[in-house]
Design a protein around this nucleic acid. Structure first.
Lengths: 185, 185
DNA sequence: ATAAACTTTCAGTAATTTCTGAAACTTCTG
DNA sequence: CAGAAGTTTCAGAAATTACTGAAAGTTTAT
């Protein structure tokens, strides 16, 4: 496995960004390599191309599988396992969002629910609880919304995105469109 | 500054989550403390409440200001600076999104643009470039969309979120509503 | 059942990130 | 302008996170 200059640049960059995206450098590099390589690629080849240890490679692949970004691909006649992306770019992006939501939002929601159950001990706590409640509601909206968007599927989502500022105008008319239901405010 | 048990739990949790949200433990704790405290709070008080060094507190506050999540608040007659949240919960959440977009997406967009300028050296590179292009377009859509949502402002955004599955139904009717413009598909 | 081919685990080490605290700096006050 | 009150910086220490490589584990073929 020898990487072309273009692929090398991209892989290195995804490594750098990896940590900002929720995984570490090598995991980012491995992901980029698998996505950019049209053929399935073995763990051995990955380790060689990125110049990292076989053990590290194994752990990176395990993590990518836990994120459902990469899957194994069995090549008939070959003994070793090969790896390929778990779907198209759209699917992968969705998975990253979803996975991050699980890690970044869900635990907080859960804690907030707990903290809001107790009666406030005093004025200060009552105020804090009020703030926490606001945060909880916001996170709940975000969660519901992101699930909603995922259910729309790529095409509709794309339509919605392309709609751009039309969204604002549409909202103004929504009550006429969908009378009764969801009349917030 | 003595924290009540409720506030302590919340602050500790935000500390734990901090790293997942793009900043470190103490920065997360400081933010939570400032948000949950109704009165403005001084750097000294923060350091004592969280039991961290004054230097660390200073750096944390600086970072929170660079994220535009916290601002200084001058109390007349007092010599020291106090700190308060830079806005309501909604505003803060928006700022976090925006700031993360800048750190997590923009640099990649920029690299991708560069990589797509060069002519592919061979078959392999052509394929990789095609993938990179897909990623670029996806990120571009996400960026445009998130800017759009921010321009809607909190109230409309909330309306949109609460609309839930209504979004799907509305999209089907959109051409009747907004004839001519934005007719994607 | 043995061995070859390949993968995973994990203890120890290396690299990175965060935190401290003392010194330098800034600003206000008398 | 001296010094008190407060803040920031930054070199080094501490804590955390990532990586290696050798040993243990697994699977397949014969």
């Amino acid at each position: 496995m020898k990487m072309t200059p273009l692929i090398t640049s991209a892989v290195m960059h995804f490594g750098e960004m990896g940590s900002r995206w929720g995984f570490n450098r090598t995991v980012g590099q491995i992901l980029a390599l698998i996505v950019l390589n049209e053929e399935p690629i073995s763990a051995q080849e990955i380790a060689e191309a990125l110049n990292i240890s076989r053990g590290n490679t194994s752990m990176g692949l395990k993590e990518l599988q836990s994120w459902r970004l990469v899957k194994q691909h069995h090549v008939p006649g070959e003994r070793k396992e090969f790896f390929i992306p778990a779907g198209d770019i759209w699917t992968l992006a969705n998975r990253v969002f979803e996975e991050r939501r699980k890690r970044e939002i869900d635990p907080t929601m859960s804690l907030l629910r707990d903290l809001l159950l107790d009666a406030p001990a005093n004025e200060k706590e009552a105020n804090a609880q009020h703030k926490l409640n606001e945060i909880h509601d916001l996170l709940e909206s975000i969660t519901a919304w992101s699930e909603e968007l995922q259910n729309l599927g790529p095409e509709k989502l794309n339509t919605l995105m392309k709609l751009g500022s039309g969204v604002g105008r549409m909202l103004e008319l929504k009550d006429k469109l969908l009378p009764g239901k969801n009349s917030v405010n």
